[in-house]
Amino acid sequence: MTADSASPDVPLHLARHPFFRGMDPDFVARLGAIAYERSFEPGAFLVREGDPAEEFWILFSGKVAIEIVLPGRPRTTVQTLGSGDIVGWSWLIEPFISRFDARAVKATRALGIRAASLRSLLNDDPTDGYHLLLRLLPVIAERLENTQLQLLDLHGA
């Protein structure tokens, strides 16, 4: 993992990311002002299960594996994420503890936002909070649906 960099391009990158595209430009600019860029080498963790979910990660390039680790079983990847995706929502749900590992499997570039700052922005203006939730919900719904399909074992038929 390389150190955070406060590139002047960060607000622009954020505004162009599919997750934020079309959202209120003022809100996105406020997020852009507190976001930072970070690179992860293959193998580096963005998020670790059980750790406080202190950052919201927005992916620009690379590949990140969402992994589950169960005692006595090999580490299992249940999904991979890449450019255009966001990593997790534990930062928004009490008790703000990460539920999965998220590990870079390729060199990955991401924008991060400190969860505490983000939550306070959302609390300050619930309209922004609502719009962010409207963006987050389809992502959660899609991942839930995909998990159901994986459980159905589409290929076992």
């Binding site: 090999p74 299992t76 990847t77 999904q79 991979t80 995909n146």
Partner: peptide
């Protein structure tokens, strides 16, 4: 659908 850590490809339906 699922993979171990030695798989560098995509995971998901």
């Amino acid at each position: 659908d699922t993979a171990g850590p030695d798989w560098y490809g995509d995971v998901g339906v």
